[in-house]
Design a protein around this nucleic acid. Structure first.
Lengths: 218, 218
DNA sequence: ATTACTAATCATCGAGTAG
DNA sequence: TCTACTCGATGATTAGTAA
């Protein structure tokens, strides 16, 4: 992604392009960005090609809307500024419990991970994860998490395949000690994986779709 | 200011460059920004020349710190993202009453302004302004105000000089109707000028240095 | 190991203009 | 009016290298 694309997205967002298609001529955008109509036109084309915006090119004015990928880029940027201007040592993220595909459990069974968890967290987690789907304004907070260091979990090789690195953050759900684990090579995700010594769903009586507030230590 | 300078400032801020000098080699910065050491070096020089950062170039690693002008640029950017992700129709800014130089009163006496105020606000303001000095985290909110449209006040010419355009926002102090006026050609400022039908300082018993909370309508 | 100069490369921009 | 092409000018980046 080109460096100035975030800036372009920002201006579209300021005009309401997050919620809906907004009418925005290349000249308008160019003026707002301090560039020519031609450059603005090209930027819009590039944003579209990169899947950052959707475009509705009518016969008159084009209309643009920020796509999911573009929203994510903006949230990332916003998260950086929150980290700069509102530094905190704890943060609460709320999500809804969602049943994973059992992938979490597979990873948690790997010795390469288990050993590191015992060393960094002081316990070997239950072989299964509580997945929390994060939505709406809570996503900005997730972006903050992505930008933080956390406790590093190294990647390794086993059984002929490679297991990527990750980072964990100590956290609490309803007073119970747990941790969030995030892959380093993070594709766009809106799901938090929570691990704990115990089987959280059972211990806390969390059902599918229940809202869960996670108090995370940064 | 070059477009990529904000991004460079952001990375310095993320490393703590807002509070103190932080050790930051051009290679480190380059890696963080995804550019070469040479480019990072040049960017730092440009930021310094533009007065956006201070630099302490020791014999080994240089140390950088974000200057007032750089902080302002970051706050402006942050304000944009707040407007995008936390839209509000009202906002409270707190400042401390400060005695202006009587400049406010001079401008308020101009017919060109008075007539417009009567038309847009419904009253002719008292010939004098309550100045509020804004500091700390409240400055980010001021930046939000700078980005908003407000009610436009046109510039004009009178007595052989030109009076610049401005924008006003309806507001309330302690329940009393008032308005904030901001020049369009805004130099870096941390002072809000509040106008009202009445002599606010007297009516509300506001003394020099008193904290005043302003509830602004966006 | 630094920072930063110069020169060559490459990306970006906008004027002109077509559709 | 609008979008968006080509292409020459401008500006940014990097490799090489000095200090």
């Amino acid at each position: 992604m080109k460096p100035y694309h975030v800036d372009t997205l920002k201006h579209i967002a300021l005009r309401g392009g997050l919620k809906d298609f907004v009418s925005m001529s290349s000249r308008e955008l160019g003026t707002a960005l301090g560039v020519s109509q031609q450059s603005a036109s090209q930027r819009i084309l590039e944003l579209q090609d990169d899947g950052l915006i959707q475009r509705d090119l009518g016969s008159r004015k084009q209309r643009v809307k920020i796509a999911a990928k573009g929203l994510e880029a903006l949230q990332r940027e916003y998260a950086d500024y929150i980290r700069i201007f509102e530094p905190r040592d704890r943060m609460t993220i709320t999500g809804r419990a969602t049943s994973g595909l059992g992938e979490g459990a597979f990873y948690m069974r790997q010795r390469g991970y288990k050993d590191q968890f015992r060393k960094k967290l002081g316990y070997e987690p239950y072989e299964g994860t509580l997945n929390l789907k994060v939505a709406g304004s809570e996503l900005s907070k997730l972006m903050i998490l992505l930008g933080e260091k956390g406790l590093p979990i190294d990647g390794f090789e086993a059984a002929g395949r490679t297991f990527g690195g990750a980072k964990v953050f100590r956290a609490k759900v309803k007073g119970v000690e747990c941790a969030v684990i995030l892959p380093i090579r993070t594709h766009h995700t809106d799901v938090l994986e929570v691990i704990s010594k115990d089987f959280l769903r059972g211990k806390l009586g969390i059902g599918e779709g229940d809202p869960v507030a996670l108090d995370i230590e940064l």
